[in-house]
Design a binder for these strands. Structure first.
Lengths: 222, 222
DNA sequence: TAGATTGTTAATCGATTAACAATC
DNA sequence: TAGATTGTTAATCGATTAACAATC
């Protein structure tokens, strides 16, 4: 759970990829992809709908149903090939390519993001890191040199960046969001606690671990 | 979107709090709470279902519907009081109290989590930070002294910790998850890229910013 | 073969939405 | 009052699930 999308679409009954996926289907396919990517890292070659269900908390019948709408990817009695299912889902989500992202903020969170491969595993490359603190500009973070915010507009255009990640304090977030929008970024990932105002064509996704935790806690306490 | 829960429940038709909330309702209420908390930080006193809808991407009619199932919290022509709606939703979610969490990993991510108030804003207190690196044990992270992993079991019991946050590399995650389970933690927040195996009574929530990003990207590309 | 797991159907249930009267 | 926004209804649509034949 987290802040999501406004788009809409039913998709043809067979869901063969020429129509838009429904919000629910796209969300679930993304979840399957997450688990499959982890499973691949751990050397797994096949996985059953039952196992996928345990890790995603989605009903196994629904998983088979979701997948079979796009083709017969599984082997009866065996399960799904992890590797080929990753390829299929990426194709269905049309996110098989590489996408460039800009990271704003070179503090602890920025460092953590730049150093991990959570984004790289899914085809996202952090091509630039920005900070407004002169002491940080020029330093190395996760193998990249930190640039000054003033370069944002130029770099976004040069590197064809469509996603901006805000790993900054709440007070600086709106102004930086404005600059990302001006530079042409269409998706903003907000790790700050600010409520961001953006034009309708831009999507903001606000990360909210504490809210996810509240949600999990509800079911533990109830 | 992210890995979620397995619990189930319909709740009485009026949803008056004596039954369990459905998964969807609990997830949406948590989202409203996130935005309300941000709005309060920015000094907002009231908010309309229309505004809540813009920030949460949930239909405004559904928001009014969700809330009116529990009482008449709004003022026609005005909207909802931010402050009192926060109180009401916390009551409905039964998460009004304080909850103690243990943070495992004192690297960049651990530092970022310990230093931010994303958890504190929602009633979660990081009461202990652990690391296995002797060089980190004893240092100060976000105002807390880092302890050695060996103390985990004792501290979890002493401090009544129900949530463990794994901010460690994938290779160390499963072993630490096992130790959290042994110590009695019921909810594990996993920031690593490992697939964790836990007993059925324990809930694992795996954070997946890249997957959320794929999901947002789908609607941008489609 | 025997066991396991997919692909698919059919039935049910909850989510979603538009519309509008009530009322602040 | 006039404008705005809630609370609520009714209709539709998609999600969910159990069950099982097909088949690896």
């Amino acid at each position: 759970m987290s802040g999501e999308q406004a788009a809409r679409g039913v998709g043809s009954p067979g869901g063969n990829g020429d129509g838009r996926l429904s919000l629910g289907v796209a969300a679930r396919l993304s979840r399957y992809l997450q688990v499959l990517t982890q499973a691949r890292k751990m050397g797994r070659e096949t996985i059953s709908s039952q196992e996928l269900a345990e890790y995603t908390h989605v009903n196994p019948t629904q998983i088979r149903r979701d997948l079979s709408a796009f083709g017969k990817f599984g082997k009866r009695g065996v399960g799904y090939s992890v590797e080929s299912l990753i390829v299929e889902i990426r194709r269905i989500l049309r996110t098989a390519g590489q996408h460039n992202i800009a990271l704003l903020g070179a503090g602890h969170l920025g460092n953590a993001i730049a150093s991990s491969d959570i984004f790289a595993d899914h085809g996202f490359t952090v091509v630039a890191i920005f900070d407004s603190d002169p002491a940080k500009v020029g330093t190395d973070v996760g193998g990249k040199v930190v640039r000054h915010i003033d370069e944002l507009d130029r770099v976004v255009k040069e590197e064809d960046i469509v996603v901006g990640v805000l790993a900054v304090p709440g007070g600086a977030a709106q102004q930086l969001a404005d600059e990302l929008v001006r530079a042409g970024v269409k998706i903003i990932f907000n790790y700050s606690d600010a409520l961001l105002s953006v034009p309708p064509e831009v999507t903001v996704h606000t990360s909210s671990p504490a809210v996810d935790l509240l949600y999990a806690l509800y079911f533990y306490l109830a």
